[in-house]
């Protein structure tokens, strides 16, 4: 990755997340310009590319794994990316979505679609278009091998900047305690 002539390719996506981590990535502000000198974005909500290329240098994944589609996307990223990064608390621990792990899926779906206030024609949706939910929300490292984790809800812009610039420069990115935050 130390080869400065060829840009590093970066893919990003959000699984069971809130896109807050992506917002934080954009929060590196004017450094985005410097970053874009070094990286080229592959699949990402930032450029709206929907499919990941077969060979990408770095994959940044926000959010945990809550449904079958998340599993497919995560597996695609793992297969395509040389370095896979869990970004934020949801990717690292399941985060807020994993708070549903206290309940059975039946309880969750009934609360949302059957017992919910103002629900008419109550039934649990079964459209094949909808990805099926896993019984528990899982952090990424339960499903695939993860190479790095950027903690934080979201990780600060400085975390993204430091991590990516270290990685691109060929250094092993190790966050100093001052950049490690889980909230």
């Amino acid at each position: 990755m130390a080869d400065a002539k060829k840009k590093v390719t970066v893919a990003t996506c959000s699984l069971a997340g809130c896109f807050g981590c992506h917002m934080s990535l954009l929060d590196i502000d004017e450094r985005l310009i410097a970053l874009l000198e070094l990286v080229e974005f592959d699949r990402s909500p930032i450029n709206d590319i929907k499919e990941i290329s077969p060979s990408v240098d770095v994959g940044l994944i926000e959010g945990g794994v809550c449904n079958a589609e998340n599993v497919h996307v995560l597996r695609q990223f793992r297969a395509s990316c040389r370095v896979l990064v869990a970004v934020g608390e949801c990717a690292a621990t399941g985060g807020v979505p994993a708070m549903r792990n206290h309940y059975t899926l039946k309880e969750c779906l009934q609360e949302a679609y059957v017992r919910g206030i103002g629900v008419a024609g109550a039934e649990i949706p079964s459209d094949p278009e909808l990805p099926l939910l896993l019984d528990k929300v899982q952090p990424l490292h339960h499903v695939v091998k993860v190479d790095y984790t950027l903690p934080g809800c979201p990780p600060s812009a400085d975390v993204f900047w430091m991590f990516l610039t270290d990685l691109i420069a060929g250094r092993d990115p190790v966050l100093p305690p001052s950049l490690i935050r889980y909230d």
Partner: peptide
């Protein structure tokens, strides 16, 4: 934070 821990590493028990 102070030990520089970025992740949980192990399987979470939930």
């Amino acid at each position: 934070y102070e030990l520089g821990i970025p992740d949980n590493h192990y399987q979470q028990f939930f």
